[in-house]
């Protein structure tokens, strides 16, 4: 028989945390209920809304469909780890570029999906930078920062308040800055 509560180490926002978890515990529930990081939200618990998006090894995944035990040793970033200066609270100067752009563009209303939107957008910037494809990428396979690319790539993060136009604006602003900085 395998262990009822195997030891699992999750490196969350740069800190290694060892847990003994029921194998049924999802990464989402581990973050929320065992690691006191409730900023990652449970919108549907079935991979259908994107609210629980976190980064594992820098790539975006849905924490509700990930069993925590399967991520032993993995590096996980949640919304709480996105701020420019971790632990600096919510003073405006401590926000990361995307977080600040979200506030400036009013890219959320109720805010419940926002943690997932931010994690998703963080990964999106990296995906755009390395030229990952989407279904709207033109036939020449050249990825450009366009509204359509952002819309398609953010389609996995539902927002019932309908902040979509402002989300596109906020992400485009940061993606555009990144491009300028690179060139």
């Amino acid at each position: 028989m395998s262990d009822r509560a195997p030891k699992t180490t999750l490196v969350v926002n740069g800190r290694a945390r060892e847990l003994s978890l029921d194998p049924r515990t999802t990464l989402l529930d581990a973050l929320r209920d065992h690691l006191d990081l409730p900023g990652t939200h449970k919108g549907c618990d079935h991979g259908q809304c994107g609210a629980c998006t976190v980064l594992i090894g820098g790539e975006r995944v849905l924490s509700c469909l990930a069993l925590a035990v399967m991520h032993d040793g993995d590096e996980i970033t949640t919304v709480e780890g996105l701020a420019a200066r971790a632990g600096a609270g919510d003073a405006p100067e401590a926000l990361g570029a995307l977080q600040a752009a979200f506030v400036a563009h009013d890219a959320f209303q109720c805010g419940f999906c926002t943690s997932g939107q931010l994690c998703s957008a963080t990964a999106l910037l990296a995906e755009l930078a390395r030229g990952d494809l989407s279904v709207v990428t033109p036939d020449d396979d050249t990825v450009r920062v366009t509204g359509d690319e952002i819309r398609e790539r953010m389609a996995g993060n539902l927002c019932r308040c309908g902040a979509y136009p402002n989300l596109v604006a906020a992400i485009a602003e940061v993606a555009g800055q990144g491009e300028e900085g690179a060139s």
Partner: peptide, 11 residues
């Protein structure tokens, strides 16, 4: 790329 979302395709 027509299926699911980046989050799901990553997994």
């Amino acid at each position: 790329l027509s299926g699911a979302t980046p989050q799901i395709r990553n997994k």
